[in-house]
Design a protein around this nucleic acid. Structure first.
Lengths: 353, 353
DNA sequence: TTTAAATGCTTAAACGATAAAGCAAGGGAG
DNA sequence: CTCCCTTGCTTTATCGTTTAAGCATTTAAA
């Protein structure tokens, strides 16, 4: 209630008030048995009265621990994945961090200064004790260096090229195969188009491969093509240009994410085609958009928040035991049937192999 | 490239390599004129070679500056405003912080420990040099204390009860009046319903008042009612229960945000009513959803990212000059005409008084 | 030639917290 | 009565950085 820009209260202030040394106050507040109960009592009262809060800088310097973790968003990610994905991730990270009274630092810039990326500086300066890296591009040298540097790092997503790094993800390939088979088997689609995400991201590569596996599994009966998109709504629409759909062309489209599916949906409408009647479409992610469109987009729900939560927990473990061997967690995804594939809207169904 | 969990490189290491004292290294790296050019050269080379990055904790302790700002999300906000709002805010804050090489700390928990909220601890511990507070509930004592504590704080939104705090916002009242008049004047609607947000938030109060002013300005010709919602999609739908629309009842609904407008849109459809033909509706925010629905929702676009960006800049200024008088910035909002009000879809139009 | 000032570093102190080691007083065992 | 162990605090050193003050040495000014 003091008001004013009061000078910060330190251990020394509390110590003077009680009539002991700062060291005694420190021990009292940390519950050392070497301090008498009565002194401890008086120290705690004085600390509360003065509004003492330990200096995080001093504590960090002394303990060599900042008590913060960094959530790193490579500049590529920021534009490739949408806001929604990142928001789910942040929610998961925050909740895990709150449980540990850890701070969350969001580091988005990757501008190189003197050869070090911004987040490598964050790590080396010990501003954070460890880092979570949201899905980076394949072959991102900065991430590779960070992962190889020995600093505690957990990657979100799949990184076949970085087998020594801890990561948390889900099986994009299987999920994509399943959702494609849903169109083939459950809806009898035979002429399929796949619109990929940017192919410098593992996610896009895996989802494409899943599509192709499903197509191959059904032999000659399937006509299939692949077009490259970039996860943006516009690219979903553009992918449909110059291609024919409906009875004359493709009867089903597997989009690598919901944004592109929405773009595709609008493009179809402009062509005078209806979904699912003329063309069945499915998306991927289920971050919110696919539920709000008309028709609702059938999609694969990915547990982004849980992903982040688990990744944060793995990171905390890694910070405690830096010598531990790398971990890998695989999460379950689920198929959400909405109208765009031809299903009546219904509840979530688990995807299993 | 070193690999391994190498012990951190400190000033001392650089100093030993060059053959001077740590103080000399510090001065050399900070470009002090008291250090000879040749020594400075050798110091910089050694620092680069060893990969020296200053310890943020030591620097913070010495300089009494952490170089970070906190983005505080009161637990009320988190559930009241959606993900989208927050994401725009985070983007704006990040970009402003990146320009200053400042770290961004996201603090969501408000769990009280020993009478201090989590974010008050963050501030008092000097983990951050200042804080940005996303729209808090009216009369949130914690925020009031924080704002009155003398610590650098900038509020996002409108806080008539905290005139001494710096804040950045836009005029919800005028905007709401304008969008309501759009229904009255441009579309000839005469029986209007307003669905508010949670009334413990200033935003909701202001948007309601704007609606009422527009109604009052058009005298007896208007039939109007107000129902309280909570900004959620469900509450938007629920607000329509037991009320009649179309020729028999209300012909226009002003929702205090887009999520509720979307909920209302679905509820109308379930009642067999069409928008805009039977009932014209308008929303508020334009964070993305309103563009994806069918019909698109006419809404007020609010510059959330710019809001955050400017707030961050004000905060940095406040950190530099804590004694400066409180600032207030008002941003422009714009009307985005889509189909739900009866307009043909068209471009953004600026709202002006 | 003497004095003053610039040059280029080193020494010392401080930021605030904490852990280890130190030390006085009291109590119990032998 | 001595010795040792508790008890309960104090002293001291440390984390890594920065800045003020100190001190030789050289250069410029008078």
């Amino acid at each position: 209630m003091a008001g004013r820009a009061t000078r910060n209260v330190t251990l020394r202030d509390v110590a003077e008030r009680v009539g002991v040394t700062p060291a005694a106050v420190s021990m009292a507040l940390s519950g050392s048995p070497r301090i008498s109960a009565s002194t401890a009592e008086r120290v705690k009262a004085a600390a509360a009265e003065l509004g003492y809060v330990p200096s995080s800088a001093a504590k960090a310097l002394r303990s060599q621990r900042s008590g913060a973790i960094a959530l790193i968003v490579p500049n590529s990610t920021q534009h490739v994945f949408g806001h929604s994905y990142f928001m789910h991730v942040l929610t998961g990270v925050s909740s895990a961090a709150n449980e540990r009274d850890a701070q969350v630092l969001v580091s988005t810039s990757a501008s190189e200064a003197s050869g070090l990326t911004a987040y490598e500086r964050v790590m080396r300066s010990r501003t954070a004790d460890g880092a979570l890296v949201t899905s980076a591009a394949i072959g991102d040298r900065n991430i590779e260096r960070l992962a190889a540097s020995g600093l505690p790092v957990v990657l979100l997503g799949n990184y076949p090229d970085l087998p020594d790094a801890s990561s948390v993800g889900w099986d994009d390939l299987s999920a994509s195969r399943m959702v494609t088979e849903h169109l083939i088997v459950d809806h009898g689609k035979r002429r399929l188009l796949h619109v990929t995400g940017p192919l410098d991201h593992q996610t896009s590569v895996d989802r494409r491969e899943g599509f192709l596996q499903a197509v191959r599994a059904h032999g000659q009966e399937i006509d299939a093509a692949v077009v490259e998109g970039d996860f943006s709504e516009d690219s979903g629409a553009a992918a449909l240009d110059g291609t024919s759909f409906g009875d004359a062309g493709y009867d089903g489209i597997v989009f690598a994410n919901d944004d592109m599916a929405f773009g595709g949906l609008q493009a179809l409408r402009r062509k005078g085609l209806r979904s699912p009647e003329d063309v069945a479409i499915v998306g991927f992610d289920d971050f919110g958009l696919s539920r709000t469109t008309d028709p609702g987009i059938t999609t694969v729900h990915v547990p982004a928040e849980e992903l982040a939560r688990i990744a944060a927990e793995r990171l905390f473990a890694l910070i405690e035991h830096p010598q531990g061997s790398p971990t890998r967690d695989d999460l379950e995804v689920s198929l959400v049937r909405r109208e765009s594939c031809g299903c009546p809207r219904q509840d979530v169904v688990l995807l299993r192999d």
